[in-house]
Amino acid sequence: MSATTAIRWVEACAVEDIDAEDVIRFDHEGRTFAIYRAPDGRFHATDGLCTHERVHLADGLVMGSIIECPKHNGRFDYTTGRAKGAPVCVDLATYPVRIDGDTVLIGLG
């Protein structure tokens, strides 16, 4: 995300909406995102669709800092967006997240 772009914080969900080591889908203005709650309790956000094919990552399995696509075993580190190997070859876009009270906000450009 460009440093010159102002971040627009958008309410994504409530803190209690996501279990630890899990993910939910968040759709906003025609785009889809995945919001994660890591085992250490921190929240993260990425694009919602796998970069390999049009599959919602929110239906996948979170294992530690890894999200696994539910269709083809494509794996990403959701804290960095980095693709971990075939069949995913392109990294995921990540977004800043902050907590305001009981609300999870995602920072969009």
Binding site: K71, H72, A86, P87
Partner: peptide, 13 residues
């Protein structure tokens, strides 16, 4: 292995 990994990916898609 690589050929079939990708071929099978397509089979599931």
């Amino acid at each position: 292995p690589t050929v079939w990994r990708w071929s099978h990916t397509r089979h599931h898609t």
